[in-house]
Nucleic acid binder design. Structure first.
Length: 959
RNA sequence: GCGCCGGUAGCUCAGUUGGUUAGAGCGUACGACUGAUAAUCGUAAGGUCGGAGGUUCAAAUCCUCCUCGGCGCACCA
């Protein structure tokens, strides 16, 4: 080893090099769980509450996730945004108490539990309802535990040990109370409508529970003869087309459109080249929409046909048809009405619509609209999707299979009906059609329209209606983003009455007694007894308690029927505001904010709105914030089949929760956001950079004490400029937090740390920090500013990276003053307005421009291998702008640009000087600095006696 | 099918009421340093602003159509 090498090392000991135990690498996957344990043990949540006890409340009301399954990126995103909101509000000086909740009732859990029972060889029918519900309860409880752990792993702060659950007895009672309020207000009625029915799950489904998938249907064209043909139509038959042959036994009418042009057609010949005989035969006289005739004849393998005459729609008015199954099983001998219908079009089918009022919304309304009686509508299909005895000859045949592996596949109803139609000579043609068809979102099995008695909440129309109240409430709500208002408004404007009954076991019962006329009993005393019983024993109380106990002396149980349906789970979740915000002392009603995915416009936002408006006349929230969905790195939806699913657990295990949180904070969460390896990689890089900046602050403040502190007035301009920037950035970040604009806050924070601090301020002051005497004013000012920066940055970082912020806080040098037990007990600190100095900032903005010219010039010389370290350089700066030259003269350009020397001149630049396009008046020439290199500070200065010896400044500093 | 939202450098995002050569950070490449070192600093490359028309003296920004993606609604007799 050479001598000068050793001497360098000797001087190294005289430097004030940064020192800290704070590690450069985060090691988050290991460290974060320990931090969670520590927060639990110290009771951080309780401390936060106690600390904020008397502050103004800010309530973000949690939309309950469903207590089933592990977290996915969507739920992680959702809870992380909520946590960002809650933490920033808390640190901004509010009491932001976050009470998480879970949605526990409903089909998905029931489905899983049924599966489990089946696995043990027990069919649902064999399991007593109370035992079944007990299992559901246990199942939900299990997943609540799992999800709680997973949410906590993400660093979500909240009342985890006292959350709300829709299955708590008190909650179930509260939901009963809310529902009975609707009843008392006369908003609940029993209707009989065709509704979506899932034969596999044997329940009615709301629109929210339906999804559309492709389904292969058998289509048929069916001929209906006239009972008594209108003049000129003797022997003619009306043709319909349907994709649901199984609804033919329920057919009671055929609709035609008044604006459609119909014609009477006669079959001349049918195709002979087939291996089977077409159902159509020469001489058949058929009535069809003109625009569809050719298509129909094509399907029927008719070779040639002729059009005989027009059939005006008026001619069909009032006509009666024979049912195509007339005589089958000695039945179907009633008349089929021809009805006019606006819904009939001639762009598909035959121009005539087969109408089975028990199996379609439009069919039902067409029937009622014609003034035909409700009780003439048959119930041909039972809850199990099999024909009842109202479909003579087909009893027991299933539309869809409901059991085993083939559940959801076509049953034997269609083939049997088609066979019967063929026997009757009513079939004209058949075919297959692949089209989108409603399916249950849970079982993925197709559903059918079925006419059953159900309970509804009347949303109504016009003045005084629930709809009107809700629309008014929407106007009074703030939406983030503003476009959300259109969406919710559109849905509320259009939605039908709220179907709230379900024929299931796991949920809050519809606690109604119905009298002989079908009207629900409304009696306060009875309702009170019901409420008390449910509060004590849960939903089971409704089913297990004898009716007489509820009804009391006033009513005879024999006069009433007890409803055994349960409530739609959306009603449960719509009540969360009542049993959480209102019933808990540590929250308040209405909520300041509901924050969920944009799909909840149709879900929770709406159910809560209707519930709140129905019972309390206003929305339970003041504002709604929506986030988008998590997509893969190419912008596609994550799905198992695409193999592009990423789980939050993978992220926390590989990188840590703080990384996941940075991903959230740096993304535009109001839109759909992407996630993938590269995107998370950026979050990791940003994290490292920020972590190192904080580490540098910690290490630079090693041994700092209050005595070092310098008044701002006594600080160099550079320090004051940085404090000005801090003020600016702090304002920007705080304002962004207030607007829930986390990406803007994150951007401001990380760009400040990178550009202003790491690449500019720290770089310039490194020499001072390492080499100047501890007593030097400049160094003290530098350390004072570093202390101020650290204090603010750790607070601003805390909501985004709660783990890392806490770790930084742990490593705060003792001299920074008294500490709280956790960084999260701090609030954001105001940066004194006196730090703000626009004039100074403008000057330094210009100086940074000059600096960029110098660093660019150095880089040129570096590429020419003339110099290496910038301290080897001396810069000759020439400025052709007197004011700018004066400004440059007021600072130490060498220090600013981290060169050893600098000269400044006015006027024209020499040839070959470096320039930048945006700095037209600045030119820089670089030469090697004259003198020897100081062995301590490495600057090349004329006052260094020999290479490796000390410069004057260092000689003083080491005395 | 209809409605809403969105498509700006490899990635994440800025781009105010339309106005000079469209910005930042990260990443990349190259280089420097070796006293923030699995760090730090510098320089550079990189975009026909999803596409096509149109309005305008002037459009990433306004209009129309198309396309891709997401969400929602609906129909399918």
């Amino acid at each position: 080893m050479a001598d000068d090498q050793r001497s360098k090392n000797d001087y190294k000991d005289t430097l004030f090099l940064p020192a800290t135990d704070f590690p450069m690498r985060g090691g988050l996957p290991k460290k974060e769980p320990q931090m969670i344990t520590r927060w639990d043990e110290m009771g951080l949540y309780a401390m936060l509450r106690a600390d904020a006890k008397d502050r103004e409340k800010f309530v973000l009301h949690d939309g309950p996730p469903y207590a089933n399954g592990h977290l996915h990126m969507g739920t992680a995103l959702n809870k992380t945004i909520k946590d960002l909101i809650v933490r920033t509000r808390q640190m901004a000086g509010f009491d932001a108490n976050y009470v998480p909740g879970w949605d526990c009732h409903g089909l998905p859990i029931e489905w899983k539990v049924e599966e489990a029972f089946r696995g043990k060889g027990r069919k649902k029918g064999d399991v007593p309802p109370s035992e079944f519900r007990e299992e559901c309860r246990a199942y939900a409880a299990k997943w609540i535990d799992i999800q709680r752990t997973e949410f906590k792993r993400l660093g979500i702060e909240g009342d985890w040990w006292n959350p709300y659950k829709t299955m708590d007895f008190t909650t179930e009672a509260a939901i009963v109370r809310e529902f009975l309020t609707f009843v008392e207000k006369g908003l609940v009625y029993r209707g009989s409508k065709p509704i979506m029915w899932s034969p596999v799950e044997q329940t009615a489904l709301a629109e929210a529970e339906i999804e559309y998938h492709d389904h292969q249907s058998t289509t048929i064209w069916v001929k209906f003869p006239f009972v008594q043909a209108p003049e000129g139509l003797e022997g003619a038959q009306v043709v319909i087309w349907t994709t649901t042959p199984w609804t033919i036994p329920a057919n009671r009418a055929v609709c035609y459109g008044e604006g459609i042009s119909y014609g009477l057609y006669e079959v001349e010949s049918v195709r002979q080249d087939l291996e089977f005989a077409p159902f159509a035969a020469p001489g058949d006289r058929l009535i069809l929409a003109d625009s569809l005739a050719e298509e129909v004849f094509g399907a029927a393998f008719v070779d040639t046909f002729k059009r005989i005459e027009d059939v005006p729609a008026t001619k069909l008015s009032g006509a009666k048809l024979k049912h195509p199954l007339n005589g089958h099983a000695d039945s179907y001998d009633f008349d089929v009405h021809m009805l006019s219908g606006d819904h009939v079009t001639d762009d598909a089918g035959t121009g005539f619509v087969h109408t089975a009022p028990s199996h379609g919304q439009e069919d039902y309304f067409a029937w009622l609209g014609a003034g035909l009686p409700l009780d003439a509508i048959p119930y041909t299909v039972g809850p199990d999707g099999a024909y009842t005895d109202e479909a003579p000859g087909f009893e027991g045949r299933q539309v869809f299979r409901t059991e085993g592996k083939k559940a959801g596949k076509d049953g034997d109803a269609n083939p049997e009906v088609i066979k019967a139609l063929v026997e009757k000579g009513s079939l004209l043609a058949r075919g297959r059609l692949k089209h989108s068809y409603p399916h249950s979102w849970r079982s993925k099995a197709p559903v059918l329209f079925r006419n059953t008695p159900q309970w509804f909440i009347r949303v109504g129309q016009g003045e005084g209606s629930l709809r009107e109240t809700a629309l008014k409430a929407i106007d009074e709500t703030t939406f983030y983003p503003p476009s959300g208002v259109n969406r919710l408004r559109g849905m509320v404007e259009q939605r039908p009455d709220w179907l709230v009954s379900r024929q299931r076991a796991w949920g809050v019962p519809i606690t109604l007694f119905v009298d002989k006329s079908g009207e629900p009993l409304v009696d306060e005393a009875v309702n009170k007894r019901i409420y008390d019983a449910v509060a004590e024993k849960g939903a089971d109380a409704w089913f297990d308690t004898p009716d007489a106990e509820f009804l009391g002396d006033k009513y005879d149980p024999a006069d009433f029927e007890k409803v055994t349906d349960i409530l739609d789970v959306w009603f449960d979740s719509g009540c969360t505001h009542a049993f959480t915000l209102e019933d808990r002392d540590d929250l308040q009603w209405p909520a300041d904010l509901y924050m969920e995915g944009s799909d909840q416009h149709r879900g929770w936002f709406q159910s809560s709105l209707l519930e709140g408006c129905g019972t309390r006349g206003r929305a339970p929230y003041k504002a709604i914030f929506t986030h988008g969905f998590v997509l893969d790195d190419k912008g596609l939806k994550m799905s198992k089949s695409l193999g592009n699913v990423m789980l939050p657990e993978q992220v926390t295990q590989k990188f840590g929760a703080d990384i996941l949180r940075i991903w959230v904070a740096s993304s535009d969460v109001q839109e759909d956001i992407r996630v993938g390896d590269e995107i998370l990689g950026s979050a990791v890089d940003a994290y490292r950079k920020l972590r190192n900046t904080l580490r540098y602050l910690l290490s630079g403040l090693d041994g700092y004490t209050e005595e070092e502190r310098v008044d701002v007035a006594d600080m160099p301009e550079l320090e004051r400029y940085i404090l000005h920037r801090l003020h600016e950035v702090n304002e920007k970040i705080r304002a962004s937090f207030d607007a829930y604009n986390f990406k803007a806050a994150w951007r401001a924070l990380s760009e400040f740390a990178i550009q202003d601090l790491s690449a500019f301020y720290f770089d310039i002051r490194k020499d001072c920090l390492y080499c100047d005497a501890p007593s030097s004013l400049k160094r003290r000012a530098n350390r004072t500013v570093m202390a101020i920066l650290l204090d603010h940055l750790v607070r601003l970082l805390a909501p985004v990276c709660p783990f890392t912020a806490e770790e930084v806080y742990d490593h705060f040098p003792a001299g920074l003053g008294e500490k709280k037990p956790s960084v999260h007990l701090l609030q954001f600190a105001d940066v004194p307005g006196s730090y703000r100095d626009e004039a100074l900032a403008e000057r330094w903005q210009k100086l940074r421009g000059i600096r960029r010219v110098i660093t660019g010039a150095i880089e040129e010389k570096r590429n020419e291998k003339l110099i290496g370290a910038s301290l080897e350089a001396a810069s000759g700066v020439v400025i052709d702008d007197p004011a700018l030259a004066d400004l440059a003269a007021s600072v130490d350009l060498a220090e600013l640009s981290i060169t050893s020397q600098a000269t400044l001149a006015n006027g024209q630049a020499p040839d070959g000087a470096h320039r930048l396009p945006d700095q037209p008046n600045v030119a820089v020439s670089i030469s090697k600095a004259a003198g020897e290199k100081c062995g301590r500070c490495w600057r090349v200065l004329p006052d260094v006696p020999e290479d490796g010896a000390l410069c004057g400044r260092c000689a003083d500093a080491t005395k």
